[in-house]
Amino acid sequence: MKAKINGQAIEYNGDGEMPLLWYLRDIEGMTGTKFGCGAGLCGACTVHVDGVAVRSCQTFMEDVDGTEIKTIEGLASGETLHALQEAWAENDVPQCGYCQAGQIMQAASLLSENPNPTDQEIDDAMYGNICRCGTYQRIKAAIRSVAGDA
């Protein structure tokens, strides 16, 4: 199968059932996408497939044939950070930081579909992304600070 990851073409002929997560991390060495639960329960591994947030631990390689995949490493445009990355820094969101790539990718997907979400819509969209450090309040603030400008 063939796909693009952050604009780079890849070709893969291995086990089609390998989750995209392990392909990214172990084969490509792209470790920005994190492993948290392996069961679609925590959102740490969130990436975009054709612009939509998915859990890469629940997405098989055979299902991404012909798609464009974007990971946290490809979210910025060159040296220019995505507005959400800027907002994450401005609000000092991360504590340990482990879940934050997934949080940012999920939030980016939300804002691309709904540039001005309500608080309830933010909660609904971010529900699947766990932060054990408890940074939710700042995640909400960061998303709100970008919402409407997108």
């Binding site: 991390r25 172990d26 060495g29 792209m30 470790t31 920005g32 996408t33 994190k34 492993f35 990971t71 946290i72 490493e73 979210l75 910025a76 950070l81 990355q85 994450w88 820094a89 000092d92 991360p94 930081g97 482990y98 934050q100 790539a101 940012i104």
Partner: peptide, 28 residues
């Protein structure tokens, strides 16, 4: 309130946690 020294690494996905260590020829 000095900013977390790892901020940029975290938001761009380049921070290295234990699960992220890669070595040449490494097995899992």
């Amino acid at each position: 309130p000095v900013r977390n020294i790892y901020m940029n690494d975290i938001i761009t996905g380049s921070s290295q946690f234990g699960q992220d260590v890669m070595r040449d020829g490494m097995l899992f």
